[in-house]
Nucleic acid binder design. Structure first.
Length: 825
RNA sequence: GGGGAAGUGGCGGAACGGCAGACGCAGCCGCCUCAAAAGCGGCCGAGGCAACUCGUGUGGGUUCGAGUCCCACCUUCCCUACCA
């Protein structure tokens, strides 16, 4: 009787052996072609569930498959260890963020090992360790030197709950991405990274990212939001001031009937000098009514509103005087914060003009129409210019060029490009992050910390209350001496956005112990780019955009070579539900790794996660579903275990002799799996669900054969081949069987079974016979049957003859080894 | 308002433009058993006694042939939302 499959012991044993033997180490000197597969760096939140397991299982199946295909696979793991939850634990439970984080890392590392993943742990990193964040500071200083890191006052997103500023990318529907509270606008002096300087490259290089999901490329495109237009100045009547506007429709410039500016626009201060005190006060009140509102409330005010300043601007081309309005629909941070109001040709301006009874001047006519009646709605299409001075009669397209040239000649503007995205706000008023390496000196001003003084260590034992910036209150940290003059100085108390760390960690894995540089260029040349990146679609903009920006900067600095995109191919895994519901602690429906490993075994868990849906789809964890995979592994065990001794004599590398069609089918089933496994990684489709379905078919065939001819070479061949086929998906049982088959080294160091055409060939095909596209017969035939013979066979069939009777054959379609279609009239 | 993706049995899903529903889950029947569990074998889209007919959200189109390609619509999900 077959010994039962003791997954608990087997899984533990093999995990220990893999660790001991270091079989997943990626050596820098290995001559084989490299393959860098990476899963997004996890945040060490504490406990893993099967949703996390899906991500790592996909990556691990890819890593193991590529290893068995002969690649030198780099598959590292580490921890995105700075961030708010650690501080929240400190606030709520008085735990030191560092110890909280490190104990979470220890637990998650144990759980990730428990999943049987093939990581090279010698390259592990944690971003909260000084050996890592020192290089954050170093990279920040290089950005600073290039003018790509700068501090300025700007209206920024402020989360009142987390007591910190947020990047635009971290504001989701007007709410904080972390705590979901409504975000406010505040004018604060903050550190920014000049990501907009890379706008054009970030946009155009998306074209080359063929291995990225279309959707993600599109989201980045939309987020970057490049638009070409014209920027030019309106003079303020009666004051020495001008107001720059940006427009994509400079062809409508003769239709300007007002100027709309954001309440925060700096020109407001100047205007106050030429308008009455009463109006000034009213503008302030209006601006204040907006400022006190959260971003969420403000953007949900669909009604356009505004306030006439009492001042006028002069249209540089028509010389008309137009009123200047402060409005709620012009964004201070986009373009110039001022818009030329053309109600006839812009929907928003039209709404605004209607509400405030401003004139509507039509200057574009639809081709072939005359203008008579007043517009019912804004006409936003291109057309022919009317009432536009010298430009009347021109097409919109031509006029845009001509007018831009004119403005340029006048020295007041010209063509320009605007991006929708803004510079990346990277400073945070929080404790648990990388200190920004800047010192403020009364004599020397803003002074970058010299490299030799890095790292600026994050002090321990800082009280964390949730009120204000903890570092700002820590005198021992703040007070320092100026690196330039040696006088008393203060340190920057802000820390970096944690996305800073995660924008370059994939390079640190290449050279994790380097204490002279964040990584050596030779290592980068050896391993970059990341061949396959795997992670959630929620990072489609944030992390992936920042990483692309950093990598382009690194490329410009000469620290990396080749293509200036870090991630060659990208795969987003789908999430995991439990019985159709999202897993969450509050619902109490989280399926944990530890309990699953104990109850079902991790091989079963891995198989289920890969099998239940294609990996990019949402999958539903069910107790019945996982039982199915447990059953499968038991079937594998029963099919192999009693026959291992005999199977030792049969090489899995040589096709066995076959005596019956069943035996031939069994050998074929082996090669069907082998082919599917290779196809799924070669195509980067990673639909291992189809490969595992074919494994099921193989094991079903073996179960049948075990009853009839368990001693046949074909059967024993299947027994010996099965561990090689299972290895990427169920690595423990695979190695156990492999070792019991008499092998001294791990199955994971073996090559795949190359699919063999002879083994894949079938003895007989089913020829499908269609008449006018409808199936009328299925006839068994020889593979490779000649066209004429196929039709002879088809037309000899009684059923087919009945369909053909009395009709003329018009056309014969032949699909070799598959189908004939006889078209009759 | 704008953009994108997807609709296949009771369920998850298979299917280079060529036999729709592989494989699994659930269910049903049988064998084994004193019995149950496990295991093993079989059935499992709809209608029809049958030959056969119908069937991949709806309606068109391309094609010898469409779940697959094109157009329109419906539904669902996702992203984005005054970006001048």
């Amino acid at each position: 009787m077959a010994e039962t499959y003791d997954f608990a012991t087997i899984e533990r044993t093999w995990q220990e052996r893999w660790e001991r033997d270091g079989i997943y180490r990626a050596l820098d000197t290995d001559p084989r072609p490299k393959y860098y597969v990476l899963e997004m760096l996890p945040y060490p939140s504490g406990d893993l569930h099967v949703g996390h397991a899906k991500n790592y299982t996909i990556g691990d199946a890819v890593a193991r498959s590529m290893r068995m295909l002969g690649y030198n696979v780099l598959h590292p793991m580490g921890w995105d260890a700075f961030g708010l939850p650690a501080e929240n634990a400190a606030i709520q439970r008085g735990i030191d963020p560092a110890s909280w984080t490190r104990s979470n890392i220890a637990n998650m590392q144990r759980q990730i090992r428990l999943m049987g993943t093939s990581y090279d742990w010698t390259r592990e990193i944690a971003t909260c360790e000084p050996e890592y964040y020192r290089w954050n500071q170093w990279i920040f200083l290089r950005l600073y030197e290039k003018g790509l890191a700068y501090k300025r006052e700007a209206p920024v997103n402020w989360c009142p709950h987390d007591q910190t500023v947020l990047a635009n990318e971290q504001v989701i529907d007007g709410r904080c991405w972390r705590c979901n509270n409504a975000v406010e606008r505040r004018n604060l002096s903050q550190w920014f990274l000049k990501i907009t300087a890379y706008g054009d490259r970030l946009l155009s290089d998306l074209d080359g990212l063929d291995g990225w999901p279309e959707r993600t490329q599109l989201m980045q495109r939309n987020w970057i939001g490049r638009s070409e237009g014209t920027q030019f100045a309106f003079a303020v009547d009666g004051a020495d001031a001008k107001i720059d506007v940006f427009t994509t429709r400079v062809d409508t410039v003769y239709g300007v009937t007002f100027l709309a500016i954001a309440p925060e626009h700096p020109v407001v201060a100047t205007l106050k000098g030429i308008i009455s005190a009463k109006q000034s006060a009213a503008i302030d009140a209006f601006a204040e009514s907006l400022r006190s509102k959260s971003e969420l409330e403000r953007t949900s005010l669909l009604e356009k509103d505004g306030f006439f300043t009492g001042a006028y601007a002069v249209n540089p081309l028509s010389h008309e005087r137009v009123p200047i309005w402060v409005t709620n629909y012009v964004l201070a941070e986009y373009g110039t914060g001022a818009v030329m109001g053309v109600p006839a040709h812009d929907e928003r301006d039209f709404d605004f003009a209607k509400k405030h009874a401003l004139p509507i001047a039509q200057v574009i006519a639809a081709p072939g129409t005359e203008v008579d009646a007043p517009l019912e709605a804004a006409f936003v299409e291109d057309g022919r210019l009317i009432a536009s001075g010298d430009y009347s009669g021109m097409s919109s397209e031509r006029a845009r060029g001509a007018i831009a040239e004119r403005l340029s000649a006048m020295g007041i503007g010209g063509k320009t490009v605007n991006f929708r995205f803004r510079d990346w706000l990277v400073s945070r008023q929080r404790y648990w992050g990388t200190p920004i390496p800047i010192v403020y000196c009364d004599a020397c001003g803003e002074v970058p910390v010299p490299d030799a003084q890095l790292p600026i260590l994050l002090p321990a034992d800082v009280p964390i209350t949730g009120e204000g910036s903890p570092l700002a209150r820590d005198a021992a940290f703040i007070n320092t001496t100026c690196p330039t003059c040696g006088g008393a100085a203060r340190r920057e108390s802000d820390t970096m956005d944690t996305f800073f760390e995660s924008s370059w960690y994939y390079l640190r894995y290449l050279d994790p112990k380097n204490d002279a540089l964040p990584w050596s260029p030779e290592r980068a040349k050896r391993w970059m780019n990341v061949d396959q990146y795997i992670g959630g679609a929620e990072h489609a903009v944030l992390h992936l955009l920042y990483s692309r920006f950093f990598y382009k900067f690194f490329r410009d600095m000469g620290w990396v070579e080749g293509r200036d995109e870090p991630f060659e191919r990208l795969f987003h895994q789908g999430m995991v539900l439990y019985n159709g519901e999202k897993m969450s602690k509050s619902r109490g429906n989280v399926v944990g790794i530890d309990e699953t490993a104990q109850k079902n075994g991790v091989d079963a868990m891995r198989l289920f996660l890969l099998y239940v849906t294609p990996p990019e789809d949402t999958s539903d964890w069910t107790d019945e579903g996982i039982s199915g995979r447990v059953r499968f592994l038991n079937r594998v065990w029963r099919a192999c275990e009693p026959h291992l001794e005999k199977a030792k004599r049969i090489s899995p590398r040589e096709l066995p002799p076959t005596e019956s069609s069943d035996e031939k089918a069994l050998v074929r089933a082996v090669h069907v799996v082998a082919k599917s496994a290779i196809d799924e990684v070669a195509s980067r489709r990673f639909h291992f669900n189809t490969t595992i379905a074919k494994l099921d078919e193989l094991v079903n065939a073996m179960t049948g054969a075990a009853q009839k001819s368990p001693d046949s070479p074909a059967y024993l061949y299947a027994v010996h081949a099965l561990p090689l086929l299972l290895a990427p998906y169920a690595p423990h049982i695979a190695d156990e069987l492999w070792s019991r088959l008499g092998h001294a080294t791990s199955v994971h160091l073996e090559r795949v079974i190359e699919p063999d055409d002879a083994a894949l060939a079938v003895d007989e095909i089913t020829l499908v016979v269609q008449v006018n596209g409808k199936i009328r017969a299925r006839i068994a035939a020889q593979p490779g049957i000649a066209e004429a013979a196929a039709f002879a066979l088809a037309e000899g069939d009684a059923n087919v003859q009945a369909q053909l009777a009395g009709k003329e054959i018009r056309k014969r379609i032949y699909v070799p080894d598959k189908l004939v279609n006889i078209v009759v009239g």
